[in-house]
Design a protein around this nucleic acid. Structure first.
Lengths: 330, 330
DNA sequence: TTGAAAGCGCTAACAG
DNA sequence: CTGTTAGCGCTTTCAA
């Protein structure tokens, strides 16, 4: 593997000139620049990242902590984050925490010296712990709002509100909500919104779950929800909804004739054949990109830079998967 | 952040002694060891990975290249690989290639100087390119067999054979195979097996697809398969099968009364309510762990060590999702 | 068993 | 604009 010195020799300049030419081209004269580049090219030079990290104190890595990779919402965020980071020559280390607070803290500690910043997807640790971690390294939070930290969330509760309104309009009174993991900040927010809506309308909401956001869990909950007599079902995420609808199919329960359905995100719901399903569309990829941009700002900007977080808007897709309740037909 | 020197001062020894105590404890006397450990503990010392990498030439990172993270088979492999690597203080960098050969090569190049070895999940590059990459860094292949490289595969074709046999026994003659991505080596192997089986029995096999292994694609293919008159359906993976069954539910097609089904892996099929579904169970997590162990061997062993690859056995689960064809009933 | 010293490959003052 | 000089924090001979 060619080193900086090899390139310097090849180009007939000093090592520092090569270093400058390659990382701050504007500090070098045109002809030198070209000569260095040519030499580097010829030798197939690639800067040793460890050496660079040692001098600069920056590794070029960001860590993205995710509860799991099976949830397509997370894997979408992760893929997008990685893609954007790659454009500026950085890499994203994805670490799976299992949604466990201890594991999360552990990973944070282990990675602290290896990365330039952290993005935490739906972290479960206490706000105090997260802020403490942020004192040591730039850190942004995804899918949860932590005062004092740059947070990126999606306005899913607002979107759900729109869906509730539509259900009221259609004449539903008994609505099921199939809840996601209890440790999820977003699920809490969604339930709050739901309770609020229920309070100011004739809507009765029955909460089912909480469950892990997996296909099989949605399927497992389907019968109970149907038996409860609810005429509409809102679901924590699309994976659960698909699972529930899968079971509806086997049970002979029809959508929307027998039950109206909508989910809180639409990963995997897209491109489904047949009539589209109502959903609150959350830009999972946008979330990943926003987190990375913020981290880049924090790392490149003056120390202590703390970019504003954002709440990304959702798109509410209301389709014929919402219909008047059976009893309302007569 | 405390450095080795800080610990040395705190413990009243030299930096080299601290280094030895922490990485090769047997080279240090008992009392010194204890003193050093205590000092390190007190200061919360963590070795700077960049410095260590610079001297040793090893980063402690492995790279795992995966086509995508949405496929639960891959995310399972990745999670297991990461978990096992963590136990020996190593990390796995997951890089998403999109199943694109150019991207795969690019990532291989970019990461070459950052990692100690590569694990390639279902790589699409030519065997020559993979071998070339292996000359530069330890490399193992998952889900594809490349002569001359340590490869870990699963005997899914063999498992599928068992399923075919059962279908023949039950009296099926027209079987559908919903194929996965054409670039997939495993899909090719499965189709070969299928053709072979068809040749030596009365089984007629119709191939549908190829499709991306996604839920929606399975759903999209369902109608065509039913309309084809096939009485049984084998599917590239469980995600596709779930999608197809989802659509069957909406169409009123019953399993197994109207069509028998089985899939080539069972991620996401497990824990489903109702009667279990026939599947060739592939140990995705075992694959990830095998790859990491092999890499560890290669890195720790003498240069040029090349552990034997393995073909992991599958478990064939045959259930009532396979039944005699409708026409056979009379 | 321990310490001193050199050096991994790069960047960043500091002169010139 | 370019070269010289010091390290970054660790591991590893080599001597003691």
């Amino acid at each position: 593997m060619a080193s900086l010195d090899d390139v310097a020799r090849e180009a007939g300049v000093s090592a520092s000139t090569v270093s400058r030419a390659l990382s701050r081209p504007s500090m070098v004269s045109e002809p030198t620049l070209l000569r260095v580049r040519a030499a580097a090219e010829r030798l197939g030079f690639r800067a040793n990242p460890a050496a660079r990290a040692l001098t600069t104190g920056r590794s070029g890595f960001f860590a993205l902590l995710v509860p799991d990779l099976d949830n397509p919402f997370y894997s979408t965020t992760a893929t997008a984050a990685q893609e954007l980071a790659g454009r500026s020559g950085r890499r994203v280390i994805i670490a799976v925490t299992g949604g466990d607070a201890d594991r999360e803290a552990e990973v944070l500690g282990e990675l602290e010296s290896q990365v330039d910043g952290f993005a935490l997807q739906s972290p479960v640790g206490s706000a105090a712990d997260l802020k403490e971690a942020h004192r040591r390294k730039p850190l942004v939070v995804i899918n949860r709002r932590v005062p004092g930290l740059t947070s990126f969330t999606v306005d899913t509760p607002g979107g759900l509100g729109t869906v509730y309104d539509r259900l009221v309009e259609l004449g539903h009174r008994d609505v099921a909500y199939l809840a996601g993991p209890p440790s999820s900040w977003m699920d809490r927010r969604r339930r709050e919104e739901l309770v609020e809506h229920a309070a100011r309308s004739r809507l009765r909401v029955r909460v089912f779950g909480p469950v892990r956001p997996a296909f099989a869990e949605g399927a497992a909950a389907a019968r109970e929800i149907v038996d409860s007599g609810c005429t509409a079902m809102l679901v924590y995420n699309s994976l659960l909804l698909l699972g529930a609808m899968f079971e509806f199919g086997r049970m002979g329960v029809r959508v929307p004739e027998d039950i109206s359905v909508a989910a809180a995100d639409d990963i995997a719901l897209a491109d489904l054949p047949g009539p589209p399903i109502s959903a609150v569309l959350a830009p999972a990829d946008e979330l990943g990109r926003a987190a990375v941009s913020a981290l880049v700002e924090m790392v490149d900007g003056p120390a202590g830079t703390r970019p504003r977080g954002r709440r990304l808007p959702t798109e509410v897709r209301i389709t014929d998967s919402l219909a008047p309740p059976r009893t309302a037909h007569g």
